[in-house]
Computed example of a mutant assay.
Amino acid sequence: MESMIHQAERRKRSRGLLVIVIFIVLIIAAFIVSMNTGFIRLSPMDVMRTLFGQGTDQQHLILFEFRLPRIVISILIGAGLAVSGCVMQGLSRNALADPGILGVNAGAGLMVMLYVSFFSSTVSGSVFLLPVLALIGAGATAVLIYALSYKKGEGLVPTRMLLVGIGVAAGISAAMIVLTLRLNPEEYQFVASWLAGRIWGTSWKFVVALLPWLILFLPFVFYKAKVMNVLNMGDQTATGLGTAIERERLLLLAAAVGLAGACVAVSGGIGFVGLIGPHLGRRLVGPKHQILLPVSALAGALLVLVADTLGRWILQPTDIPTGVVVAVIGAPYFLYLLAKTKV
Rank of each mutant, 00 (worst) to 15 (best):
Val191Pro: 05
Leu275Ile: 11
Ala134Thr: 06
Ala238Cys: 10
Ile245Ser: 00
Arg13Ala: 14
Glu2Val: 14
Leu214Phe: 10
Thr141Phe: 09
Ser43Phe: 05
Ala297Thr: 11
Gln189Pro: 04
Val87Tyr: 00
Phe119Asn: 02
Ala301Val: 08
Ala299Leu: 09
Gly100Thr: 01
Ala238Pro: 13
Gln58Asp: 13
Trp313Thr: 11
Pro212Glu: 12
Gln54Trp: 11
Ser120Met: 02
Ala327Glu: 02
Ser117Met: 12
Asp98Val: 07
Ala138Gly: 15
Val83Glu: 13
Thr37Lys: 05
Gln58Trp: 06
Thr239Ile: 10
Leu305Thr: 05
Asn229Arg: 01
Gly165Phe: 07
Ser43Trp: 01
Leu96Asp: 00
Ile101Trp: 05
Leu17Ser: 10
Arg15Pro: 07
Gly139Arg: 00
Thr159Asn: 06
Met111Cys: 10
Pro294Asp: 10
Ile77Glu: 07
Ala169Tyr: 01
Ile329Leu: 15
Glu65His: 15
Gly311Met: 07
Phe64Ala: 09
Leu162His: 06
Thr159His: 02
Gly258Cys: 08
Asn232His: 10
Ile62Gln: 07
Ala106Gln: 12
Cys86Trp: 02
Leu293Gly: 10
Leu91Asn: 00
Glu248Trp: 06
Leu252Gly: 03
Arg312Gln: 11
Gly78Cys: 10
Val19Arg: 08
Tyr333Asp: 05
Val295Pro: 04
Leu179Thr: 02
Met161Ile: 03
Ala265Trp: 11
Asn94Ile: 02
Ala254Ser: 12
Ala8Lys: 14
Val116Ile: 09
Val116Trp: 02
Gly268Trp: 12
Ile101Leu: 15
Gly271Glu: 05
His279Lys: 07
Val324Tyr: 06
Leu210Val: 08
Gly53Glu: 09
Leu42Met: 12
Tyr333His: 01
Gly274Met: 09
Met35Thr: 08
